[in-house]
Amino acid sequence: MIGNSESQFYTDYINNKIKESNLESRINILPACNHKELKKHLVDKSFYIFPSKEPREGHSNALTEAMAWGLIPITTSQGFNRSVIENDSLIVEKLDVKCFVNKIKYIIDNDLIEQFSYNSYNRVLSNYTDEIVLEKLKEEYDFLFNVKFTS
């Protein structure tokens, strides 16, 4: 797990769940880091688990960054997750551990890691680079300011 929590209650909750599950030796919690450090942490990973239920979830930068590294996102449909990923087979039906496990198991059992990893990387490359986003933004502004109103 990588990132900082603003809530000590949530941090304690996560740490207690890890301890209760006897997974302390298998789960590392690292603080937020820059892109160079992030690369070191993600280079040998396959999945990005994003169990968001945040009601104000928008377009998650963390989700896009993980996909840019070729990680396969498994997430809820909160916010813009579904449209960012554009692959319903990576969206869990409900916020439940078994749902996440079943998605991951399906991908592994059907030898889809390479394909879905490539799809994640390519989705970012095709839609979310600076150049593409700036061009889309420019098109929207051009549309907004060049529309002629008639009464």
Rank of each mutant, 00 (worst) to 15 (best):
E24S: 15
K94N: 06
K103G: 01
T76K: 06
E6I: 14
F149N: 08
R26Y: 14
I27G: 05
F50K: 00
D109E: 14
I27S: 00
L112M: 15
V133G: 01
A32F: 13
E57P: 04
D88M: 04
S120E: 01
N110R: 09
R82Y: 00
I85Q: 05
L137Y: 14
Y128S: 09
N110K: 02
T150H: 13
I74R: 03
E86W: 07
S7A: 12
L112C: 11
S7M: 12
N28P: 03
N4K: 08
Y13K: 13
I74C: 04
Y128V: 05
E140V: 14
S120D: 06
L134Q: 12
K53W: 14
S60W: 03
G58S: 10
A32S: 15
I91M: 05
V124F: 09
F145S: 06
N127T: 04
I49M: 01
A62L: 09
L134V: 15
A66Y: 04
I72F: 07
F50V: 00
P31Y: 08
I85W: 01
D130Q: 10
T129P: 02
S60K: 08
S52V: 01
T150K: 12
L23Q: 10
I91Q: 03
L38A: 07
K17P: 01
Q78W: 09
D88W: 03
L112H: 11
D44E: 15
